[in-house]
Design a protein around this nucleic acid. Structure first.
Length: 138
DNA sequence: GCCAACGTTGGC
DNA sequence: GCCAACGTTGGC
């Protein structure tokens, strides 16, 4: 099963914002590569939530509730959004600096392509980050 | 605040 | 279709 990681600046939209809303719409993505990843997401898949700029850490796990649909923030049909819900916060958020030091995380988009905001993770990468964050895999 | 990386735009 | 100029992202 594919896993994902999505970034947001907490100033704009944070983990706490998502928890407050319960169900969140992940919209505003204006990058083709990121959009293509979003269109590949399937209901029930798990997504890590990363705080860029402020925090620079993975803070929790989300789940895809609704697969890609027209981004409600624009009429431009090129852009898609997905619906997500928070599952669990990390007991211990995982810092970017920590991930950069981990030998099994050297190929993740966060490190290799720092501007990409939506990216896939391998089973192994997902498991490593969950472990670093003190989360038990269910 | 700076700047590297990278995507987009527009002139040719 | 190339590429210079420019804008944006995001780490430092």
């Amino acid at each position: 099963m594919p896993y994902w990681l999505m970034k947001s600046e907490p100033d704009a939209y944070s983990w706490d914002d998502l928890c407050r809303e319960g169900v969140g719409t992940w919209d505003g993505v204006r990058n083709y590569q990121a959009r293509n990843h979003m269109r590949n997401m399937k209901q029930g898949e798990q997504v890590l939530f990363y705080h860029s700029n402020i925090g620079m850490e993975v803070v929790g796990v989300m789940e895809i509730l609704e697969e890609a649909f027209q981004d409600p923030t624009t009429d431009d049909q090129r852009w898609s959004a997905v619906r997500v819900k928070a599952i669990n916060p990390f007991p211990k958020p995982v810092k970017l600096s920590e991930m950069k030091q981990h030998p099994l995380l050297q190929n993740i988009g966060l490190i290799k392509q720092s501007r990409l905001s939506v990216m896939p993770l391998t089973d192994e990468e997902f498991a490593v980050i969950m472990d670093l964050g003190g989360m038990k895999m269910s």
